[in-house]
Computed example of a mutant assay.
Amino acid sequence: MSTMDRADCDDGTAVITVEGLHGLIDALRSEGYRVIGPTLRDDAIVYDDIAGPDDLPRGWTDRQQAGRYALVRRSDDALFGYNVSPHSWKKFLFPTSETLWRAERGDDGTMTCAAPSPPSEKFAFVGMRACELHAVSIQDRVLCEGDHADERYASRRKSAFLIAVNCGQAGGTCFCASMGTGPRAEGGFDLALTELIGGGAHRFLIETGSAAGTRILAYLPKESASASDIAAAAAVSENAAEQMGRSLETDGLKDLLQDNLDHPRWADVADRCLTCGNCTMVCPTCFCSTVEDHTDLEGKSAECIRKWDSCFTLDFSFIHGGGVRASARSRYRQWMTHKLANWIDQFGTSGCVGCGRCITWCPTGIDLTEEAAAIRATPMEAGSS
């Protein structure tokens, strides 16, 4: 059972050690899950396969600012003492490249066409932040609901087991508190951990969020959580909330952006924007894609492949006669107004969760919170152009 269709269950709170965390990962692996979590690779903390706590970034953190990312040693052995990874969990649920169908011509000239079998791999994600849980819920709304659900995404999502980790610190580009998406996970998980280090102890407060989480927790060596454990976990989240590196005023933001499509700030940001698409590639909620048809040289086989795309690419808005958004100004405006305004009209929520990745990984350090504040400071008068 997943968090998408969880049954009602009793709340459960306990405390486990690092050995208990090892037992949790082992329990998930024994049930056939491919366990994904944070690990060190290529001078970054990335999400990849893990076999146990030894694969986690013990004693490492990251320092993030606009256009900057660096690994730094911590003064303790925290396993989850970092902010967010350069990429998101989206890459596992909605892969960067995926074959939609394949056609084969037989020797007798007959043609067969079929889609690949539904994904059977089950993912268990360890270390999801509150903002990332919100991002998954946004992707669910886009890709699982409505008349045109993505069956392959829905299949992966339905079988996924989500383990949140409440943030103990905020990064220099984080602004989840402004978006109401963190730093504490309030729901959408099967299990949630809060890392507690101090007094010579290294423990985790663990909370259940689904019947599946309750069942897995029953397998683990654990202790009952005391009032002091619960208070310490609450203090961890409060500390992170006070460290936000950015803020975004959301009141009236939708109307502000939609009423200022000709604001001179769009030209200003266009002078700095490389239209590289980094912001959309690292964003955990962007869902734009394109399809490509490939054939072999003999004409015996063909396939249709879906790949991630970006509204920053010139071809993305191409129609007969050319692209609709030819300038950097129009493409950045499209991305930011869709993310913070038009998304609300489409899906009933903002498309931004305040993770700050778009700011960190912009080569020129463009900051959408700064851009929104600049437009708010000098809004255009109604009817002006």
Rank of each mutant, 00 (worst) to 15 (best):
F312C: 11
F312W: 11
F312K: 09
F312H: 11
T313G: 11
T313D: 12
T313E: 13
L314S: 08
L314W: 05
D315I: 07
D315Y: 10
F316H: 13
F316I: 09
F316N: 12
S317E: 12
S317P: 02
S317N: 09
F318E: 15
F318D: 14
F318P: 02
H320W: 07
H320V: 09
H320K: 11
G321E: 12
G321N: 10
G321P: 02
G322T: 05
G322N: 10
G323Y: 05
G323Q: 13
V324F: 12
V324A: 15
A326C: 14
A326L: 15
A326Q: 15
S327Y: 04
A328Q: 11
A328N: 12
A328F: 07
R329T: 04
S330R: 09
S330F: 03
R331Y: 04
R331G: 05
R331P: 01
R331H: 07
Y332A: 08
Y332N: 08
Y332S: 05
Y332R: 07
Y332F: 13
R333H: 06
R333Y: 03
M336S: 05
M336W: 01
M336H: 04
M336V: 02
H338V: 05
L340A: 06
L340G: 01
A341L: 09
A341N: 05
A341F: 02
N342T: 08
N342L: 13
W343S: 11
W343V: 06
W343I: 07
W343P: 02
W343Y: 13
W343D: 12
I344F: 05
Q346K: 13
Q346R: 14
Q346D: 13
F347P: 04
G348E: 14
G348I: 08
G348H: 11
T349R: 15
T349H: 14
T349C: 15
T349L: 15
S350Y: 02
S350T: 02
G351Y: 03
G351Q: 07
C352Y: 01
C352A: 12
C352W: 02
C352D: 05
V353I: 11
V353F: 07
V353R: 07
G354W: 01
G354E: 07
G354N: 08
G356P: 00
G356H: 01
R357Q: 06
C358M: 09
I359A: 11
I359N: 06
T360G: 09
T360N: 11
W361Y: 09
C362G: 03
C362M: 10
C362R: 03
P363T: 04
P363A: 15
P363R: 13
P363H: 10
T364C: 13
G365P: 01
G365R: 03
G365D: 06
I366F: 00
I366N: 00
I366Y: 00
I366W: 00
I366P: 00
D367F: 00
D367H: 01
D367M: 05
L368P: 00
L368S: 00
